[in-house]
Computed example of a mutant assay.
Amino acid sequence: MGSVDIPSKQSAAVREGTGESAKAPVKQIDVRMPGAGEILIKVNWTGLCASDKSLIHDEWKDFGVAMQDATKGIAGHEGAGVVVAVGEGAESRWKVRSTGTDEVHCTAQKNSGFSAEGTFQEYLVADARYSSKIPDGVKDEEAGPIMCGGVTAYVACKRSSVKPGQWIVLPGAGGGLGHFAVQYARAMGMRVIAIDGGDAKRDLCKKLGAEVFIDYTATSDIAAEVMKVTGAGAHGVLVTAATKQAYDMAPGLLRPNGTVVVVGLPKDPSVVAGAPPIMMALRRLNFVGSVVGSLKDVEEALDFTARGLVHPILSKGKLTELDDFMEKMSKGQLPGRAVLQVAA
């Protein structure tokens, strides 16, 4: 095992305040060394996910979801970097060199940035069993977003049950999750109908592999347009847009036996995914939820990038710009996925 000089102090973005006015300025905090079964990761890049903003700004408090004390005010869950220390019992899997974090429905799970310290810091202690090795050919700034947004889109495509050659509709296709979904769906052989607004989103979605683009700002009847393209409706709709309009529209885009995959998480608790019972019954529609993925899913999602099939569109900044990036995210001013450089 190699040796690395590890400082006693590090920079971390630590939440101050609550609600919409909360900030996360960078401060100096102690570096914690790994215990048994843990590794210490020097975080080179971290993604900024919409869920990070939601937790820092208490947007999900009506659902009883909030940052827990164990986070010490440090959010973030899309970190990638190098392993610089290995705790007792983790030596067989890890050497001092590689990186990232997450399993899905363990009742005792700890989630980075929600119930454990997050990736908005230079040195992160992580459970060695649930950290993912980044394959050669994948950059750290790509890997972070792929291990959250990427695997979320990839698993959602799988849960749609759409087969190669069949149609999938992606509302919000030009967004952080949506632009991943376009690429994974295309790489999996699906025929992609992208829905978003404006020429810039049209160009992006077509460049990423969408066969058809529907501009919701210029189309009066989106369902009719989908029926015109597909003949009988799409086989699946993957809703990444966290809006009432997207969820209300989704079932009307499906053919019989079609599936809506619920991915986008609106902060309004009154938004419901579903359809009138008679519509669901007569057309035998399916509604399934999807959230991130297993270690195996993460490995598969990263492999698409290692093979050159999926690449995130990145808006890059530094950890010190976290508050500015959250404000831009709220205003829809960040193309693709946001990533922040942590370690110099």
Rank of each mutant, 00 (worst) to 15 (best):
Q109C: 14
I195Q: 04
D199M: 06
G178L: 06
V169S: 02
S98T: 10
K158D: 14
G149L: 09
G100H: 02
G189Q: 02
A116D: 05
K201T: 09
G118R: 06
R186Y: 08
R97M: 06
R159E: 15
S115I: 07
G165S: 10
N111Y: 02
R129S: 07
R186I: 03
A181E: 08
D196N: 12
R186W: 00
V125Q: 04
D127K: 04
L177Y: 05
T107I: 10
T107Q: 08
S98R: 10
F180G: 05
Y123N: 10
Q109D: 09
R186C: 08
P135M: 14
G113E: 09
V104S: 09
I168Q: 03
A128L: 05
L170D: 03
Q166F: 09
T99K: 06
V138G: 06
M188H: 08
K95H: 03
L177A: 08
E122Q: 15
G174N: 10
D127P: 02
K133M: 13
A108H: 07
K110P: 00
M188S: 14
S98Q: 14
V162D: 03
A143G: 06
M147S: 14
P171R: 07
R186V: 12
C157Y: 02
V169C: 13
V151E: 05
A108R: 04
V138D: 04
V169Y: 03
S115N: 10
I146E: 01
V192N: 00
S115P: 02
E122T: 15
A181G: 12
W167V: 12
A153I: 12
I168F: 01
E142R: 00
I193Y: 05
L124T: 10
G113F: 10
D140Q: 09
F114M: 12
G100A: 14
V192G: 07
L204P: 04
V125K: 07
C205R: 08
V155C: 06
A185Q: 04
G189H: 09
V192I: 11
F180L: 15
Q166E: 15
V192C: 00
V162Y: 05
V192P: 01
G149N: 09
Q109W: 00
N111L: 13
V151Q: 07
Q183A: 13
R93C: 00
Y154E: 11
R186F: 04
A173G: 15
I134V: 15
L177P: 01
G165E: 05
F120P: 06
